[in-house]
Design a protein around this nucleic acid. Structure first.
Lengths: 215, 215
DNA sequence: CCTACCGATCGGTAGG
DNA sequence: CCTACCGATCGGTAGG
C-alpha cells in the first residue's frame, strides 16, 4: 500500500515516470498521507490535528511526513485539492453520462453518504476557515465565490427559459441551495448516532427545496 | 458553580448573594472569562484555543482560570449555556412583545449580524462537535433534537390551519429552515471580507425561503 | 548526486 | 487567585 515500486515504463510526465523506480513510492506515500490526514482533520479539525498522529497512522515519523509536505498548512492545502479533485471528477463524469446539473448535484450529495470523513472534514474546515487568518481562509473564500457564481448563473439561465417558480430570485436561491447543502451535512453527521431509519436524508431534503423553486 | 458549598440560609441559589461582599467579584471574573472565551473559541475553535491565552486576555494566570472552571470542557459548557441564555431571553421577549414565532426567528437572525463572535463560535463548534467524542457532542445533539422538534411542531400546527404551501412536508421544512440558518452563517462570515453592500443578508434569505413555504 | 526517510532535539505550549 | 512546575506533546528542523 505505502510501498508500490512500479518499475515498468510509463508515458506519464512528471516525477512519476523516472527510471530505476522513479518517485512512484514517494507519490504513493503522499497519497496515503493525504487520505490519513482527511480522517484526522475530520475528527479533530485542523488546529486539533497533530502531524505526529497523522504520521504514526501512516507508519512513518513526523519528520518523514514533513519531507513530503513542508508544513501543516501545505498538507491542508493538498487535502483540499484532493477533495476537490475527487468531487469534480465524479461530478463531470455524471454530467457526461447525460445528467442535468441539478441531478448531478443530487447524485453528489447521495455519494457523500458513503464518504463521511470527507463530509466531516469539509463541514469542519469551512467553519474553521471563516477566520481571516486561517490557512484555508482564502481557499474557502474563493471556493464559495466560485460555487455561488456557478449556481447563480445556472439558475438565471433556467429563469430565462421559464424554469424557475414565480417570485424566485436566482441569486438568493443560489445562496440557499449552497447553505442548505452545508447545513444538512451537520444534521446528517449528528444523525449518524441514530438508527439508519432515523437518519437525515440530505439528497431528499435538497430535492424538496429544488422542487419548490424549479419547474 | 461545580462546587458550591452553600452552608448558610439563603433564598437564592448559588454563591451570588453572600454577605461581606460575597462572591460578586468571582462572578464578574467568570463572566469576563466566558465573554473572552467566546472570542477565542470563535477564532480558533475549541481544540485550537489555549487556556493561557484566554486567561492572559482576562488578565489572570491560567491556573487562575482553572480555579473558576475545572477544565477546558467545563469552560466550553459555560460558554454554550451563556449563548443559549442570551438567545433565549431576547427571543422570549420578542414573543411577549407580540411577534409570531417566525418573525421572532427573523429578528434573532438579524440580531446575529451584530454578534459576529457568537456566530463564529456556534458555527465552528456545531461542526467540530459532530465528532462523537467531542466534549460538546451531547450538547449539540440535544440542541438540534430540541430545535428541530419545536420547528416541526410549529409547522404542523400551521399546516392544519392551512398556513403551509401545498406539497410542503413540515418535518422536511423544519430541517431545511435549520440547515439554512446554519449554512447562511458560513456564507455571511465569509462575506465579511467584502464591502458592506456585498455581504450576505441572512435574514432576507431566510425570509425568502419562509415566503416559499408559508402562506 | 538522488530518494526516502531516521533519531534526536529545537523553542514553546497543552491541560492539569 | 499567584508562582512554580509536571509529563507529554506541539510544529518544525538539525545532521546523517
Amino acid at each position: 500500500m505505502s510501498v508500490s515500486a512500479q518499475t515498468g515504463p510509463s508515458t506519464r510526465t512528471g516525477p512519476t515516470s523516472g527510471q530505476r523506480g522513479g518517485y512512484a513510492k514517494g507519490r504513493a506515500t503522499q497519497q496515503e498521507i493525504i487520505r490519513t490526514a482527511i480522517l484526522v482533520f475530520a475528527d479533530v479539525g485542523f488546529h486539533g490535528a497533530s502531524l505526529r498522529d497523522i504520521a504514526a497512522r501512516v507508519g512513518i515519523s513526523h519528520p518523514g511526513l514533513l519531507h513530503h509536505f513542508p508544513n501543516k498548512a501545505a498538507l491542508l492545502e493538498a487535502v483540499l485539492e484532493y477533495r476537490d479533485a475527487v468531487d469534480e471528477q465524479s461530478f463531470q463524469e455524471d454530467l457526461e453520462r447525460g445528467s442535468d446539473y441539478f441531478e448531478a448535484m443530487l447524485h453528489l450529495v447521495e455519494r457523500n453518504r458513503l464518504r463521511r470523513p470527507l463530509v466531516e472534514l469539509f463541514a469542519g474546515l469551512s467553519t474553521e476557515a471563516t477566520s481571516p487568518d486561517h490557512p484555508a481562509h482564502e481557499y474557502f473564500r474563493r471556493r464559495y465565490q466560485r460555487v455561488l457564481d456557478e449556481q447563480s448563473r445556472l439558475l438565471r439561465e433556467r429563469a430565462v427559459r421559464g424554469g424557475l417558480a414565480p417570485g424566485v430570485d436566482p441569486d438568493q436561491a443560489a445562496r440557499t441551495v449552497v447553505a442548505l447543502m452545508d447545513g444538512l451535512q451537520v444534521q446528517w453527521l449528528l444523525s449518524l448516532d441514530r438508527p439508519a431509519a432515523e437518519r437525515v436524508d440530505m439528497a431528499a431534503d435538497l430535492r424538496g427545496y429544488l422542487d419548490l423553486i424549479l419547474r
